[in-house]
Every structure is written in structure tokens, then in C-alpha cells.
Amino acid sequence: MGALIGAAVMAAVDEIVFHQILHWHHFYDRSTPGIGLLSDGLLHTAELIALVAGFFLFADLRRRHALAPAHARAGLFLGLGAFQLFDGIVDHKLLRLHQIRYGVDVTPYDWAWNIAGLVLLLAGIALTVRAGRLAGTRPAGS
């Protein structure tokens, strides 16, 4: 649930900032501008569906008093970092769907994007370990 929300939030940040505000790229840049815009719309749709689904899962866990906030926070950071690294490595480099920016040396952009994603992912891992330790120190039934 937290990871789903995190991935959706990072997809939204990417799509809003880099696709819409800065106009640096579209999700799929290997065709016409119209197809690029369509791909952005499909990404936005998927991101909104994931966000709504994640919050429905969050609400259900909360309603059932089964929500573990520390694990949810950890999942959020795992999702943020995983999306960003997937986008930076798979979408940008392996599939070459788009680059972060065109007409410039992309190396600093790639490093910044992927290092930021790695930092978020490592924060999520650290929070997951911490949440597991906290859960292990609580008395049963609390």
C-alpha cells in the first residue's frame, strides 16, 4: 500500500514537473508530439489509478485497525525510490523511451535522478528495518 502510493506520487512529480511544467520530455518520445502527449495522458491515468487504489488500501487497513504507520512510511519511500530508479535505468537507458532532457549533456541529469532515487530507496530500506525492529520489541497484542 505504501509502496503503491509512493510510486504513484513519484510518477505524478515526474509527469507534472518534467513533462508538463518544464516540457523536457514526454513519457514516449520516439514518435510524433501527439503520441508523446498521449503517452503522458496514459501515464497520468495510471498514476491516478495507482494513487486512488493505494489510498483505498490505506483506508481499509486503517478501518480494520491493521495499519502499521512505520511500515506504511517505509513503503512510501520504497515506492518513491523504486519508481525513480526504474524510470532512470529502465525507461531512460534500457528502453530509451525518453531522456530526462534533450539538447544538453544528460550525464549530470542522469546521475542526479538516479542518485536521488537510490537515496529514497535506501531511506525506505532503513525505515523498513527500523519498523521491523520496532514491531519486534512491542509486547504481543499491542
Rank of each mutant, 00 (worst) to 15 (best):
N114M: 11
G136P: 06
L67D: 10
L94K: 05
T137S: 15
F18H: 02
A135S: 13
I21P: 02
D29P: 03
I125E: 00
G117D: 08
L134V: 06
A11K: 06
H25M: 10
I16P: 01
G132S: 10
I35G: 01
A112M: 05
D91S: 10
F56R: 15
V52P: 08
A70N: 13
A140T: 08
V119M: 08
F27N: 11
W113N: 06
L67S: 12
G6N: 05
A135I: 02
L4N: 03
D87A: 01
A50Q: 03
R96L: 06
H19E: 00
G36W: 01
L85N: 14
V106N: 03
N114T: 11
F56M: 11
H25K: 01
G141F: 05
F55P: 05
A123K: 12
G132V: 09
V9N: 01
T32H: 11
G41E: 03
W24G: 07
I35A: 07
A59H: 09
L43V: 10
G54I: 02
L61D: 09
G141S: 01
G34V: 08
V13T: 04
G41D: 02
V13D: 06
V119F: 09
G124W: 04
H98T: 00
R62K: 15
L97E: 02
L38M: 10
D14P: 02
G36S: 01
R130M: 12
G103R: 05
L48S: 14
R63Y: 04
A116Q: 08
I125R: 00
I35Y: 13
T137M: 14
D29Y: 01
A116R: 12
L67Y: 04
L4Q: 11
H71D: 09
L122A: 15
L43S: 06
Q84Y: 08
E47G: 08
Q20A: 11
A140S: 10
F86Q: 11
G117F: 03
H25R: 02
L43Y: 02
L134E: 12
A12N: 05
T45W: 11
F18P: 01
W111A: 04
F58V: 04
L80M: 14
A46E: 00
F18I: 06
A66R: 14
R64G: 01
L48Q: 09
H19D: 02
V52M: 10
I89S: 07
D110W: 06
L22Y: 13
N114R: 09
Q99I: 00
L94E: 07
